[in-house]
Design a protein around this nucleic acid. Structure first.
Lengths: 346, 346
DNA sequence: CCGCTTTCTGAGAGCGCTCTCTCGGCGGGG
DNA sequence: CCCCGCCGAGAGAGCGCTCTCAGAAAGCGG
C-alpha cells in the first residue's frame, strides 16, 4: 500500500515520506527544513524515511510557494573576441561558483551577444526564476541593468558602472579592481627604473576599466604628451596597431604601460620587430596578470595582477547578503587592491 | 476590481490575464502556449491582455505540472589549472549557450572541484531541476555519469568516454573531435616536410583525448622508438619538462608533435633555449589552435584546429533532440573533423 | 428545422510544497 | 483540583499553472 501509493511514477514526495514516517505532511516538511520545533523522536523517524526513500524536495513546488529560487543569474555581455581569449571569465565563474556552492545556490549562465539576446534575457529575468543577478562588463547601451532594476531584482555589478549618476546611486552595488591604483603602480615602477618617456596603450575608452587605468597613468604624468597615449581594444591586434602608432609618433619612448596583457603581448612583438630590446630599450608593463600570457611572453611580462576570482567571490557574497536580509544595512561597493608583479619586461 | 484583484503583490498571473481578456484561465493558457484551437478573435484579446499586463508565465508553476524545466545542466569537472588557462570552456559555453538560447532553454552551470562538489551536484541533479545534462572532461573516477544514468536523465558527453564498455553502450551519446585523425594530420605534415625523427609530447594518459592523439601518432609511426614519446599534462610547465626530457634522450630529433598548444608554447621555449631553431632544426606542430597561444608563439604555431564551439553546439542539439522525442531513432555519437593550420613552426 | 458531428471554451482537479491556524495535551500556579 | 498558558502536531488552504473532461456553440446533411 505504502509503496504502491507513493512509488508510482518516480520520485518520492513529501507525502510519501510523511506516510512512511507516520506523521503529517506538515511535520515532514518541518524536519526537511531544519526540524525546528519537532520532537526528537519524530524528527528521527522522518529523517529515516527521507533516507530510505531517497527523498529530494521538488524545487519547483517549493519555489512556487516560497518565491525563492535558490538560483542566481550571471549575465555576461561581451563581444566574442574577449570572451574567448581571456581566462578572465573562467576565473570569475569559478569564484562565483565556489561561493554559490557554499550557500547551496545555483548559477544560471546567460550570455548575451546581440539585441535579441538582451530581449531574451530580459524576458527570462522577468520570469522570476532567479533571486538575484550578477552583471558583467556592462557597456553603456546595455539595457540589462535597467531591466533588472525595474524588476526589483537584487543585483551586483562587476566593474565600476559608467553611466551618469551611477556613482551616486547608493542602491548600485559593484565590485571592481583598483584599476587606477594598479595603473599608478605600473607607471611608478617604470619611473623607478629610470624611464623618462613613458607611453600607454589603453583599452576601449567606453569601458570604465580602460578609463580608470588611463586616469591612473595620468595621475603620475599629469602633463604628459598626448602623443604618448594610444587607444587599443584589449585584443592582441589592437596592441600591435597601437604600439606601431606610438613608435611612429614617438620613436624615443623608453617605457610603455599597456592596459592588458593580451595587448602587451602584441606590443612586445612590435617592439622587437622594430629592433627595440625589451626591457633594455623599452620597458613594458602589462595589466591583468593572465598566467597563460604574462608568464609566456618573451621576455616574461611585468604586469599588474588583479584578483579576478576574488572579485567573483565578493560579488556573490554581496549579493547573497542582500538576498538574505533585504533591508539590512546596505553593504557598500568594494574595490579590490591590485598588485605589481615584476618579471622581466620592466 | 480587476486591478485590485490581480495586481496585488506584483507579477500578473494567468488568472488576471484571463480576467482582463474576458476568457477562462484555460483559454488564456492555450493562447500563451501557442494558441492552437483558439478562435482568432479570442486569441487576439488574450494576446492584448498579455501585452498590457506584461505577463510572463511563472516557470515554477509550469514546471510543477509539466515536469519540464526548460533548463539543462552543464557539468564541468576540471582541475583548476586547465579551466583557467584554456579558452576551451569559454568556447564550449558559448556554443552551448547559443544553441540553448535558440531553443529557449536555460543553462545551469555546475563546476566540480572536489568530492563534496560531486555530492552536491548529484543532489542537485536528483532534484529534477533540469531536463538533461551536458558532461565534460570526464575522468575515470567521476561519479557523475553514473548518477545521471541512474536518475534516467538524458545526457551527452563531451569527449569520448574512457571507461570500459563505454564504447559499446548505445545509450551513451558523445561528441568528440577527431583527435586521432588530427594527430595523423600533424605527423603527416611533419613527414611531408622531410622530418625523420619525429617525437611527441602527450597529454595525461588518463584522458581519451590524450590517448587518441597518441594513437594517431603511432598510426603513422608504428615502429617508432618509445624514447620519442614523453608525457605532459596539458600545462606549459609540463611541456617544458617533457621537451627537456626528449631533448636529452634524443638530441637528434627534428620534429615534435605536441598534443596541445599550451604545451607547445613551453616546448618551443625549451628548444630555443637549447639553441635549436624552430622550424629549421626542429619543426613543431601543436594541437587545439587556441588563438591566443598559437598565433602568438615565436614562430607562430602550426597546429591542429578543433572546432570547439561547434562541439558545444552539437552536444546541445543532440541533447535537445533526445529531450524532444525521447524514444525516437536514437541519434548516434558524432566525431568532428579536425583541420591542420599551417603557420611557421612547421 | 431537427439531430448529429465537430470545434471551441470553461470548470475543476491536482502538481508538491509551505505555512497559518487550530487543537490536543501537558505542566504549573492558584 | 482546576484553569490558564504553552508547546508540538495536524488539517487545509493555496502558490500559478496545465490538462482532462464535459458541455456549449457552430456547422451540416437530410
Amino acid at each position: 500500500m505504502t509503496e504502491s501509493e507513493a512509488g508510482t511514477g518516480g520520485r518520492p514526495t513529501l507525502e510519501s515520506v510523511a506516510e512512511r514516517a507516520g506523521v503529517s505532511r506538515a511535520t515532514a516538511s518541518r524536519v526537511v527544513n531544519g526540524g525546528a520545533g519537532v520532537r526528537v523522536a519524530l524528527r528521527e523517524k522522518v529523517e529515516r524515511a527521507v533516507a530510505e526513500l531517497g527523498y529530494v524536495p521538488n524545487l519547483a513546488a517549493r519555489t512556487l510557494v516560497t518565491r525563492r529560487n535558490r538560483a542566481i543569474a550571471v549575465v555576461i555581455a561581451e563581444p566574442e573576441a574577449r570572451f574567448f581569449s581571456d581566462p578572465f571569465f573562467a576565473q570569475h565563474l569559478r569564484g562565483i561558483s565556489r561561493e554559490l556552492a557554499a550557500a547551496d545556490n545555483q548559477m544560471v549562465l546567460l550570455l548575451a551577444e546581440d539585441e535579441r539576446d538582451h530581449e531574451r534575457i530580459g524576458r527570462y529575468l522577468s520570469g522570476g526564476h532567479v533571486d538575484g543577478v550578477l552583471l558583467f562588463s556592462l557597456h553603456r547601451s546595455d539595457p540589462t541593468p535597467e531591466t533588472v532594476h525595474r524588476l526589483g531584482l537584487p543585483f551586483v555589478i562587476g566593474g565600476r558602472p559608467g553611466w551618469p549618476g551611477a556613482e551616486s546611486d547608493r542602491d548600485l552595488l559593484y565590485v571592481d579592481n583598483d584599476n587606477r591604483g594598479g595603473a599608478r603602480l605600473a607607471v611608478q615602477h617604470l619611473r623607478s627604473i629610470g624611464r623618462k618617456r613613458i607611453a600607454t596603450i589603453t583599452g576601449p575608452l567606453d569601458q570604465t576599466s580602460s578609463i580608470d587605468r588611463l586616469d591612473g597613468y595620468r595621475d603620475l604624468l599629469p602633463d604628459g604628451d598626448d602623443d604618448l597615449i594610444a587607444t587599443g581594444d584589449f585584443t592582441a591586434d589592437g596592441g600591435i596597431r597601437a604600439m606601431t602608432e606610438l613608435l611612429s609618433r614617438r620613436p624615443d619612448l623608453d617605457g610603455v604601460f599597456v592596459a592588458s596583457d593580451v595587448m602587451a603581448s602584441g606590443a612586445i612583438r612590435v617592439l622587437r620587430a622594430a629592433g627595440r630590446r625589451v626591457p633594455e630599450d623599452v620597458a613594458v608593463v602589462g595589466f591583468d596578470d593572465v598566467e597563460s600570457i604574462a608568464a609566456w611572453t618573451e621576455p616574461r611580462l611585468t604586469t599588474v595582477r588583479q584578483e579576478i576570482e576574488e572579485m567573483g567571490r565578493l560579488m556573490t557574497r554581496l549579493l547573497l547578503r542582500r538576498l538574505n536580509d533585504p533591508e539590512a544595512s546596505a553593504p557598500s561597493s568594494v574595490i579590490i587592491p591590485t598588485l605589481l608583479v615584476v618579471r622581466e619586461s620592466a
